[in-house]
Design a protein around this nucleic acid. Structure first.
Lengths: 98, 98
DNA sequence: GCGATACATTAAAATATGCTAATATTATAT
DNA sequence: ATATAATATTAGCATATTTTAATGTATCGC
């Protein structure tokens, strides 16, 4: 395998995660989940977007391993998949914040 | 101003940065610059993409405040704009790495 | 079972992004 | 001043992403 190829693969992998984080609403949803577990309907209220859009965003974040889900009766509650995720968002805010 | 609106703006801002980081080649370029300043021609060699593509990527990262540039004769050398950036990429690798 | 609630999925239209090719700029050397 | 090397910019096309709208699935209470 060519030199640097390994590094490029790592970048492609991380870039895919960054892409998932690169949508304003999606990132906002993630930030909401940083405060604690929440149902789709809760997120819909604070986010203000149509329900299918929220579901699509959450679905994508789940595929990418950013969040996890569990059913509670008829509702589904989402949560952050890794406790180190909030720190990354906060670091970004410190560096690139207003 | 409505509640949560401030938070949404922050997310939009950070999401824009994430979007810039969300391209494999761009992220690879940034990682190269994490090792130290480099000229466009150097980056072209390790990256293997056409020169205009590299320039476009660098130009965008510059606009977003991720990198800085300075001329040295006929060549332009790029560098990371903030020393805290490499840590973010490394954190991401730790969490989402192979 | 039936209706209602909460969520998920899909397809198609609208929009944004990235690549290519051509051209422009900037600085050095002769 | 002209030529050359290094980098930047632009426009147009191809592709990917987002949104919208409609439909599907699952769970609970009756």
């Amino acid at each position: 395998m060519a030199k640097g190829s390994q590094e490029k693969k790592r970048c492609a992998r991380i870039a895919a995660i960054f892409k998932t984080l690169s949508h304003p609403q999606r990132l906002f949803l993630l930030c909401c989940l940083c405060e604690g577990e929440a149902a789709v309907s809760d997120l819909q209220k604070v986010c203000g977007a149509p329900q299918p859009v929220i579901s699509q965003h959450l679905s994508r974040m789940r595929r990418e391993g950013l969040v996890k889900a569990r059913r509670t009766g008829t509702s589904v509650r989402y949560r952050i998949a890794d406790p180190r995720i909030p720190a990354i968002v906060r670091s970004m805010e410190k560096i690139f914040g207003p």
